[in-house]
Design a protein around this nucleic acid. Structure first.
Lengths: 242, 242
DNA sequence: CGTCCTATTGACAGGCTTCAAGGAACGTGG
DNA sequence: CCACGTTCCTTGAAGCCTGTCAATAGGACG
């Protein structure tokens, strides 16, 4: 049940078996969402939290004029709407970017569990702060990196994150996103994403065709992007005293 | 001691007097930082957290090529580096934007306090998620709003936040930032911030001269910006069961 | 086989940056 | 008290990066 998520907690946090099990017990059965379907909507009152078990999703914010921004790309093992645990209303929606499998937890039961087992509360807060770190890096990209660097940076980040869940090979990974979805995450138009990818392809830096990313020289791409994985906090939660 | 911060907790969270007092007891004396001085540096190992009591500061991320991004503008009452509580290393630095007064808390003592008093842990996590919400909105701005809208939106946000700490009048507020600092927060150059402000001034939408912002018609500015304050979570933490 | 969605490419426009220079404000030291 | 340096604001000119509009092609799918 939601095994990718639990495995991540086991690997990255100091949670013990009985705590992980207590968490596992309150997870609902998996549910399938078709692509482009909302899991939650901005402004909703959080009632259950969503754990992505398979497929791809994103946090989305809509602007008044109908444009949207994908503030986070979510993959298997990600907790989609962690802020829902503490905030009264969602600041963003969550959409399925591809068909995906989702497990759910009742918010109140999770809060109760956090009270009984403070280590769980700490672990979830840690997850939230890591998400924040990703968002922070994305914001810096949007503010100061060129389209070229932004595209390269996103591809590097996804590569690194997919590796931690065992879904990437050293030279590439599957990515079932449209160029428009990539643009929505990077503050670009689909047309410009297309041109940027075409240049990368011509230069041999990377290709993204047919829902697959191929990176011949990973180091070259990371240099182009100014990518450095520290902000992903892949080392886990060590350093928080019990 | 750090009264603005404690007052905010008292107003926005369900913390009780004895909990607030316990927190107050581990705060250090105030310290004065001159403008443009770092309080923490990206990559540092967090040892004490910083509470801004007076003046202005910002979270800052540096890019490889020397450009920077201010991912959050911090004012009196803000906890500058909340992620330091759970993460091993800072993903960003904190700089003083003006001379400012800072109170500090030892990280380990604060963590110990969180263990003894879970309500404090919850309140701090809530603060972190609210910060996350502001960053999320800023990211959407960077991704999809024009320079005009971004400038207007920032001015609206600061207005709303300053009001909650009693530092703004209905038609304006003091803001000791340079146009370059504003640009660094909005992903713009100082030159373009200047041109944008000049246009606003000519149009009578708002003025920002001599470190003071004046907004003759607040509603008009908010409409221009597409500003809506829900993401600030001014209503506080109600809704999280004890 | 038609339909829809996505990718691709071209032409053009415009928002924002870059480079540059002058002026105002302010503190500092002689 | 004034000369001077520094920082910030202001404005202009030129150019590039990215967006907008548009048209075509290709694939998936019923």
């Amino acid at each position: 049940m939601a095994s990718v998520f639990l495995a991540r907690l086991r690997a990255k946090t100091p949670l013990q078996a009985h705590e992980i099990n207590a968490l596992a017990e309150i997870l609902s059965v998996h549910r399938l969402f078709p692509g482009d379907r909302p899991l939650t909507t901005e402004g909703d009152r959080p009632q259950r939290l969503h754990i992505l078990v398979g497929g791809w999703a994103a946090r989305v914010k809509w602007l008044a004029d109908g444009r949207r921004h994908l503030s986070a790309i979510l993959m298997a093992g990600d907790l989609c709407d962690i802020d829902g645990l503490y905030l009264q209303r969602y600041d963003y929606g969550v959409v399925a970017l591809s068909p995906c499998v989702v497990a759910m937890v009742d918010r109140d039961r999770l809060l109760a569990l956090c009270d009984r087992m403070p280590a769980i509360a700490r672990a979830l807060s840690w997850l939230g702060f890591v998400d924040n770190a990703l968002l922070n890096e994305a914001a810096a990209s949007l503010a100061r990196r060129s389209a070229r660097q932004r595209v390269a940076h996103l591809m590097c980040e996804l590569h690194a994150r997919l590796e931690t869940v065992g879904c990437a090979s050293p030279d590439g990974y599957d990515l079932p996103l449209s160029q428009e979805q990539v643009g929505d995450a990077l503050g670009l138009t689909a047309v410009h994403v297309n041109r940027t990818l075409a240049r990368f392809r011509k230069e041999g830096l990377m290709t993204f065709t047919g829902r697959r990313v191929v990176v011949p020289d990973r180091f070259a791409l990371e240099r182009e992007a100014g990518f450095s994985p520290a902000y992903l906090h892949l080392e886990g939660m060590r350093g928080v005293p019990a």
